[in-house]
């Protein structure tokens, strides 16, 4: 009896749904535009604004996935090359010419490039003006993205650094030369290019610089230049300090430049 009643009710609902057409809202736009609605919305719905921490979280979603993927790939490559199965005599011989830190030193310039490219995305796609006029301006967007990716890169490099003395039979100085130096050198060389150039020219130049740094480290190792540099006392720490300071100064200039639109009056009609 109860089941029958339920069936009837369902049938009635279905029939009513098929017969009754819901009328389209007639004065929806007028309602949204009415001063009463606007005032109420301003007071209640829109008064609390997001905080800096929430802004950071939202920016994390807008960082391209391949940035995270590249970091993961470099980390995975480092682990795979370190793992025991690779240490069998045959692959070891094949990899003798290119040891793990050298392979990583050739990949790391592209990690720096990915981070710099992420920062230069606003200019590349013409979003600068819109972002400059927003509450969290371009300056904030850049700080957020570079901050997130910088911390992520730093974590990766920090994880890779102790692997050298433990697994790759390279001392700390050699590991730093292969991991930190390419990163800092790429940052120092690409940041001025990002500051001064726009669009495709900038992309090509920065990719070229990263490729050159990558090739430089491969050939430097092959030509025994890196080993000799490591053997020279204080050369690697001095180089790290020099390129570290240069990268920070370039980064500061880049962030300062983002406070205002870089624009050439001759471009106007």
């Amino acid at each position: 009896m109860k089941r029958n009643h339920f069936k009837q009710k369902t049938l009635l609902t279905k029939t009513l749904r098929s017969l009754y057409t819901v009328p389209a809202p007639e004065r929806k736009d007028t309602f949204f535009q009415s001063s009463d609605y606007r005032a109420a919305a301003r007071e209640t719905l829109y008064s609390p604004r997001i905080s800096w921490s929430v802004f950071l979280q939202t920016q994390m979603h807008y960082i391209r996935k391949w940035n995270w993927l590249l970091t993961l790939c470099i980390f995975a490559a480092a682990i795979l090359l370190t793992l025991h199965p690779w240490q069998t005599p045959a692959p070891q011989e094949q990899l003798q010419e290119l040891s793990t830190p050298v392979i990583l030193s050739a990949c790391i310039p592209f990690l720096a490039l990915a981070t710099i490219a992420e920062a230069g995305r606003s200019a590349r796609f013409g979003m600068e003006e819109l972002e400059l006029s927003a509450r969290f301006s371009l300056h904030a967007v850049l700080c957020a993205r570079l901050g997130i990716l910088g911390v992520e890169n730093l974590l990766l490099l920090a994880v890779l650094m102790p692997l050298g003395p433990h697994f790759w039979e390279t001392d700390l100085s050699m590991t730093a030369a292969c991991i930190l130096l390419p990163y800092l050198l790429t940052c120092t060389l690409t940041l001025p290019a990002v500051r001064k150039l726009r669009g495709r020219d900038c992309t090509i130049l920065c990719t070229g610089i990263s490729a050159l740094v990558s090739v430089f480290f491969l050939t430097a190792y092959a030509a025994d230049f890196l080993t000799r540099a490591v053997d020279t006392p204080a050369l690697i720490p001095a180089a790290l300090l020099f390129f570290g300071v240069a990268a920070v100064l370039e980064l500061r200039k880049y962030i300062r430049q983002s406070e205002e639109l870089t624009w050439n009056f001759t471009l106007t009609g």
Binding site: I50, F125, G126, M127, E129, L130, S133, F136, S137
Partner: peptide
């Protein structure tokens, strides 16, 4: 502000674009 010319990130739909701008403008 509506500039004379503006760009957008590739792959953005209208909804994505407005949600992104809303985040920059501090809306929850």
């Amino acid at each position: 502000y509506l500039p004379q010319d503006f760009g957008y990130y590739p792959g953005f739909t209208a909804e994505d674009f407005l949600m992104y701008m809303a985040a920059l403008k501090g809306l929850r």
